[in-house]
């Protein structure tokens, strides 16, 4: 016990220096300079949010690669069933393809509402876990 106390009294961790280095290394956002500091190294989400252009591009490429879709007709505002001539099962299939592409699990009620490229892009862009 005495040994342990003696060691603890003499050990000094450079905690201050570490947080400053981590904050400098991470992107300069406001929460980086919070007292907790650091770039939330163990966080599984939230730090690298997708840009809207990237989401749109990947959604469109998923829709274009769907076998029944003519790639030339796909635009960001296209409606799956009205414009692309797909049926409701194809719609579900596209949403599942998007889930796979962005590593999401979209709840059934919300998946039913996604029926156009525009809505899909909005939903995935606003989803915190999209990656």
């Amino acid at each position: 016990m005495a040994m342990r106390a003696a060691i603890l009294r003499h050990i000094r961790l450079p905690a201050r220096a570490q947080t400053l280095a981590a904050a400098a290394a991470a992107a300069p956002r406001s929460w980086d300079r919070s007292p907790l500091g650091g770039s939330r190294a163990m966080s599984s989400h939230g730090d690298d949010h997708l840009a809207k252009e990237e989401v749109a591009e990947r959604v469109l490429s998923v829709v274009k690669s769907f076998p029944k879709v003519d790639p030339a007709t796909v635009t960001p505002d296209v409606h799956f069933q009205n414009d692309l001539g797909l049926d409701s099962l194809d719609n579900v299939e596209i949403v599942m393809a998007l889930e796979e592409e962005f590593k999401l699990e979209i709840p059934d009620l919300e998946a039913d509402k996604i029926d156009s490229c525009h809505l899909a892009i909005e939903y995935i862009y606003n989803h915190p876990m999209a990656g």
Partner: peptide, 14 residues
Amino acid sequence: ARHRVFDFFRAACR
């Protein structure tokens, strides 16, 4: 029944 088909399809895809 239609909804159940979609639910089944999702379960199969997942």
